[in-house]
Write a protein that binds this DNA or RNA. Structure first.
Length: 197
DNA sequence: CACCAGATCCTCT
DNA sequence: GAGGATCTGGTGG
């Protein structure tokens, strides 16, 4: 299977974030296969990025962020989990945050996990993505570059014509001059008050 | 130990 | 648009 490999993730997080738009996240959950198309991401830099969790020294919470590329960094914000894929190299705490997905497969299971029936309520935000895919802290630090993984990624379909927009990142109070948020324009599953931003 | 801030979401107005 | 829920880590006494 042609899954996204270590080399794909071992690059600058801004490039990886843009390249992940339109790819698919696959989650093995119990006996079910949950699949979502990634429609929104954010990049966090290893250096000089005051908004990144890696800007502070390594802690128990952020250990996987400082590890090698191609591993999950799952942590909590308030009472919710959010999921990143680590990029670049060891001791370079950079990552791509999965901010929104469009449900593709296993939709009924995702609806049940989310407790919502409306499709646009399933994955339109980083916390929602983790709930819909059954991702929690037990997924922190696992490899996502093998088809044996409980989480892995499939490339975008080459035929698809993607209209990708960028903006400042959401929910942070510093480094607003970095335009590190990427999203599929006019896709209703993108997070935020309006799909177009 | 107390207090505060945070890469969020939901339920009201 | 405002505020609460609720968990973790960092800071300061």
């Amino acid at each position: 299977m042609n899954i996204l490999n270590r080399k794909f993730f071992a690059r600058n997080p801004v490039e990886v974030a843009r390249d992940m738009i339109g790819t698919y996240i696959v989650r093995r959950y119990g006996g079910d296969l949950l699949v979502g198309k990634i429609v929104e991401t954010e990049a966090y830099l290893a250096e000089g990025d005051t908004a990144s969790h890696g800007y502070k020294p390594k802690s128990n919470r952020t250990e996987s962020l400082f590890g090698p590329a191609g591993y999950a960094y799952v942590t909590n914000v308030h009472r919710y989990f959010i999921m990143n894929v680590v990029t670049e190299a060891v001791n370079q705490p950079s990552a791509v945050l999965i901010r929104a997905i469009e449900p593709v497969e296993g939709i009924e299971v995702m609806k049940r996990l989310r407790g919502k029936d409306n499709l646009v309520d399933i994955g339109s935000g980083p916390g929602k993505v983790c709930i819909a895919l059954g991702i929690d802290r037990s997924c922190d630090g696992i490899s996502v570059t093998s088809s044996d993984s409980d989480i892995y990624f499939l490339p975008r379909s080459t035929k698809e014509n993607l209209d990708i927009g960028s903006s400042a990142r959401i929910g942070i109070s510093s480094a607003q001059d970095y335009l590190f948020r990427f999203f599929l324009k006019a896709n209703p599953h993108v997070s935020g008050p309006t799909p177009l931003r």
